[in-house]
Design a protein around this nucleic acid. Structure first.
Length: 569
RNA sequence: UGCCUCGUGGUGUAAUGGUAGCACCGCAGAUUCUGAUUCUGCUUGUUGGGGUUCGAGUCCCUGCGAGGCAACCA
């Protein structure tokens, strides 16, 4: 984030230079607590927090809880948890005990006051058009709208109605408060937008205190202004709302409500950037919620979900996610990122940091017929890219498990793993010569036999002959049975929404989850929940944060290793 | 057919009137006790047409294409 001089950074730089920030850049991340945050939000988090950090300012976490119907405490708490996990900390004054933390709902009193001010100034009025009528009066983008019959109600009367709205005298939808702007504006949002609506719904944070709630377009600029936010960054679809945002800020300015800092009146400004899209996934909260409620996935934290909690459970690291957000960049172009970049980011980190272990996830037994004695311990580095990670000792014996895919009875060309008559190195142990295999009644390989070269202990031949193939293994006598969950992309289609939001389910990948039972080296049983490893030659795996235990190990595949072996090529 | 925004390799993103660069992906090759990593090399690009300029991805006009806006959602 330090070197990327994208347009938002340049915009802020200019304001800092001009001195309009009062000496402090203040941003905010304003999620609505109506769902779990996903990788798309993570990008916004990186931008909002990242810009504040880059300019030595502060970023507020503000729950934009102005629509009680969809919001809950569970969502609120998990949003906070996920942002912290990503590695960001909100700062600033805060509207309660917690620094940097705000609830839009804590500003409802103030917003109500501002609404009354607007009414007094003749800039807002109460309207009792039905929603259908309102729609008709508003007109269409190509044609101007018509004024509401209530448009010229005197302020005193409007005040009466508005207070009655607040006091619960009316039913939902009976009245609303609208700004008086311009019914002929080419920008629909200027055609006397609704500021307050009646909702007889308890708020998760304030309970029954209110039965009228402010709309986003009214609430957001007030929140920004009163918090002293200087730079308010959001996604592209809010671009057409910007004139309205500025209109509200102008009204606040007239009311003398703008915060002053360092002798400067702080006028919050909004700018918009493109949201993150990733192919082969969906990023809409509504659709993710649908996957959860219809039990197409195991929950918000299902490792196949693009949610932050899902990715955490999948084994992604905060740094890799941040790196990804960094690399996709910030612009106004609507684009679709390739999940391969995300995978590259996580491999890049885990290659440096993850300890190596051996696991066999599709086991077939190998018997070393000339094995002659007790266990020979194998010593292998924990991480060849990091000597400081040390070594570990693994038991090795007469019978071992190897991957079924590492054996071919009749090898294809360029296959340099195990096959009858061929030599292969057993990682860290010795050179093994396969002599044959036995099959079960179905013709499936049941057991592979061979002999080991006693002069090759440690892995290299005493006569210097080269053995191209090295395969991993787990000792049958000491290996631990484990559940391994293999994940692939949730959707087979690049754009699951290509047939509209209704059709996305039909593109779900039936093989997005495969659960297998394998064997892992003994050390892995004591893995901590959430601990990440590289299973050599297979990929990066994490001990499941919920289900893993020493007596019943469970590992999730985060991402496979790159594999340039092309069978049959 | 109103208003707003955006068009640079397959993907993402730089170049802010002066050599179109970087990364991912892909493809070769080298190294390798992980077909991983590492290293080297390669393929592929400025939406069309005009104009301004010594010089245009960049500025202007115009066409084409994409997206957003008509919830009492955010």
């Amino acid at each position: 984030m330090d070197t990327a001089r994208h347009f938002l950074r340049q915009w802020i730089e200019k304001d800092v230079a001009a001195g309009t920030t009062g000496g402090k850049v203040v941003t905010r991340f304003p999620p609505e607590p109506n769902g779990y945050i996903h990788i798309g939000h993570a990008k916004a988090v990186c931008v909002d927090f990242g810009m504040a950090e880059a300019f030595g300012g502060e970023c507020h976490l503000r729950l934009d809880d102005t629509n009680p119907a969809k919001e809950s405490d569970e969502y609120a708490e998990n949003i906070k948890k996920d942002i912290r996990w990503l590695g960001f900390q909100w700062s600033g004054e805060g509207d309660g005990a917690e620094a940097g933390f705000y609830n839009a709902s804590n500003m409802f009193d103030k917003m109500y006051e501002i609404a009354e001010n607007l009414i007094r100034a003749g800039q807002a009025y109460c309207c009792n058009l039905t929603q259908e009528e309102w729609k008709e009066y508003r007109g269409v983008p190509e044609r101007p709208g018509r004024p509401s019959p209530s448009r010229d109600t005197p302020p005193e009367r409007n005040l009466e109605i508005f207070r009655a709205m607040r006091d619960g005298k009316y039913a939902d939808g009976e009245w609303c408060l609208r700004a008086k702007i311009d019914m002929a504006s080419p920008n629909i949002h200027f055609r006397d937008p609704v500021l307050y609506r009646i909702r007889h719904v308890a708020h998760y944070h304030l309970g029954e205190k209110w039965c009228i709630y402010p709309m986003y377009d009214f609430a957001h600029p007030i929140e920004d202004a009163l918090e002293g936010v200087t730079h308010s960054m959001c996604t592209l679809e809010f671009e057409v709302h910007r004139p309205l945002y500025d209109w509200v800020v102008d009204r606040l300015d007239e009311m003398g409500l703008l915060v002053e800092r360092g002798g400067v009146k702080i006028r919050p400004q909004q700018r918009e950037f493109a949201r993150l899209n990733i192919t082969h996934t969906v990023m809409s909260k509504r659709l993710l919620l649908q996957l959860v409620t219809e039990k197409r996935v195991a929950g918000w934290d299902d490792p196949r979900m693009p949610t932050v909690c899902g990715m955490r459970r999948r084994g992604y690291t905060p740094a890799a996610i941040r790196e990804f957000c960094e690399r996709v960049g910030v612009s106004k172009v609507e684009s679709e990122s390739d999940p391969a970049l995300l995978e590259w980011c996580v491999r890049e980190e885990l290659n440096r940091t993850a300890l190596r272990r051996m696991a066999v996830i599709d086991p077939v037994k190998v018997v070393i017929d000339n094995w002659d004695g007790p266990a020979h311990d194998v010593v292998l580095p924990n991480n060849p890219t990091d000597e400081a990670a040390g070594t570990r000792t693994i038991p090795f014996g007469r019978e071992i498990w190897i991957e079924r895919a590492d054996f071919m009875e009749t090898p294809e060309k360029k296959f340099f793993r195990m096959f009858p008559g061929g030599e292969v190195r057993l990682r860290g142990a010795c050179i093994f010569k396969c002599t044959g295999c036995v099959k079960d009644a179905d013709g499936r390989i049941a057991e592979i036999h061979g002999t080991w070269d006693k002069e090759s202990w440690g892995g290299n031949a005493s006569d210097g002959r080269k053995v191209k193939g090295t395969i991993h293994w787990v000792d049958c006598a000491t290996g631990v049975k484990a559940e391994v969950r293999l994940y692939e992309r949730l959707f087979t289609e690049k754009d699951p929404m290509k047939d509209g939001p209704e059709g996305f389910l039909k593109f779900m990948n039936p093989e997005s989850l495969k659960v297998v039972t394998g064997y892992v080296e003994p050390l892995l049983a004591s893995a901590a929940n959430g601990e990440r490893f590289q299973f050599e030659r297979l990929g990066y795996f994490v001990a499941d944060e919920k289900d893993h235990s020493p007596s019943a190990p469970v590992f999730n595949r985060t991402v496979s290793l790159k594999d340039s072996f092309k069978p049959g090529a």
